[in-house]
Structures are given as structure tokens and as C-alpha cells.
Amino acid sequence: MSVETTGAPRAFALPLRRKRLGAELPGWIAYALAAPSMILLCLLMLLPIAVMLVMSLTNYRFGDLSYAFIGVENYLDLADDRTFWRALSNTFVYVAIVVPGSVALGLALAVMTTGLRRGRKIYQMIFFLPVTATVVAMATVWKYLLHGTIGPFNLVLQSLGLPAIDFFSDPDLALTGLAIINIWSLAGFNMVLFAAGLTAIPSELYDAAEVDGLSEPLDRFFSVTLPLLGPTTLFVIVTSTITAFKVFDTVAVITRGGPRGSTDVLLYTTYLEGFSYFRMGSAAAMTVVFLAIIMVFALLQTWVLDKKVHY
């Protein structure tokens, strides 16, 4: 509401215009309500990201008194860094095991449990239990469970006359071992998401399928359930991918990247670079790569969510 003083015809309209109406809420209310969050958003999120982007262009090391801008050298170094590439490829291999495993298992559990006449609740509770367990505590348990000599898993194998498998000392198996733990802890979560998707399928469709002669459970699964769960499945895949991509706790507790770098994953490498070796510049560059990949997944997730809504 600007106050204008020119022109006679406007002059008589002014008193009307300038009067604040009681029905209008003062403009500052909304800002006052949002201010604490806006300030925190800037201090905890936007500013740090900006600092990190700048830092990735420097050779700053924690504790150094000076640093220099070195352009994209950190990124070029990463491109040549065999350790970094190994961490990246390990992460993707890990994702490639965890996602299909946890999604398929989650779907199977959801379909099986919701089809039950009795006991659905107790089964779903059991399968969800690992989701609620503290990852670090369970990692400790798994480490013992899969221990090469005294682990109960191997004792059971041996008692069945099978050779022992030492997951976490074998560079070829360590990543798979970690992936199994993640599948175990993620399947129940995915089961709940799928079960929610299943409730959304109208029961008339099953009646229709039956009338059309699809009376076998498997026929119904492939002709009705799976196609209608399509959007849910896409969503579960993307969510699981992001979760698996952020693997850190089990690596930190069980393998520490070993044996021989076989479980070195992106977040763990970045963590070491930044908080063990204090090479902030290069750690920042790694984080930028991590953020870029996460953003791709996030965009995918938004896109999938949109699709899910419009289905």
C-alpha cells in the first residue's frame, strides 16, 4: 500500500486505501512463525553446503593456518584415485545386492502375510523387528554370528558337514556379508510399504480375475497384484537404493573397510578422509560427488512419487 500524494482524484480514495483492515493479519505473523526454522535452515543446511562447495576447491587441511584455492584439482585427483574408485564401485555393488534382495524379500513377505487367514500380525511383527533394532548393536551380533571360527552360523554349517564360510575375513565375501545384514534389516520395512500398496488394490479386481478364470494364486499374482503394485515397487526400489547407498554403520563397526579395502564404501572413505586424515578439501570434493548421486536418486524419487499419485 503505497502512499501517493499526486493527483486530486486519488486523494479522496487514499484514506480508504490506507486504513488497515481488521480482517488482515499483520504480515509479520507468518514471518515470525517461520523465522526460527528459516534461520536454522540457513545456518545448518544452506551455509554449510555453500562452505563445502567452496572448500572442495581448496587444499585446506584441518589445523592448517592457510590454504589455497586449487580449482578443480581435488576432483581431478579423485578421478585418478584408485581408492576412491574402489569405494565407489564397492558402494554400487553393495546397492546392487541389497536392493533386489530386500525388495524381492519384502514383496514376498507382504504377499504371503497379507494372504494369511491367521497369524498375519505376528509374522509381520517378527519381520519388522530388525527394522527397530539398533544397527550398531545388531552389527556386533552379526559380527559374532558370522565369525569364521566361533560364529554360531559356521558351527551350524560344520555340524551339517559343510565347510565354514568366513565372511568378514574374505575379500570376496565381506561385502556380501554386509549386504545380507542390510537385507535382513530392510526387508521388513519394505514389507510394510508393500502391504500398504496391497490394501489399495480393490478386492473387486480379484473377483474379476477369478471370474475370468485366473483361479491359481500365481496367476492372480502376476495378472493383478504385480501390475497394480508397480508404482509402489518403483518407490520401494528408489527408497531402498538411497538407504543402501548411505551404508556406514556396519562398515564402521564390523569391517572398517577391510579386508584389503573390499568393503571400503563411499561414506566410509569420505569419513576417513575428513575426520581421520583431516584432508578437508578432498573430503569436501568426495561429499559433493556423494550429494550429486543422492540428488539423482532424490529426483528419481520425486518423479516416482508423482507417478504413484497419478496412477
Partner: peptide, 20 residues
């Protein structure tokens, strides 16, 4: 901004927050 921040995990601002 809120929706953007939804996708950013703690590991991203961790280094500057630590320094701060």
C-alpha cells in the same frame, strides 16, 4: 528449500558443521 533439504542427509553438511 524445505523439499530440497529433505533429500540432503547429514553427511553432506557434516564437514562445515564440524569446523564451525
Amino acid at each position: 528449500l524445505v523439499i530440497f533439504a529433505l533429500t540432503v542427509p547429514i553427511q553432506v553438511p557434516a564437514l562445515p558443521l564440524y569446523l564451525g
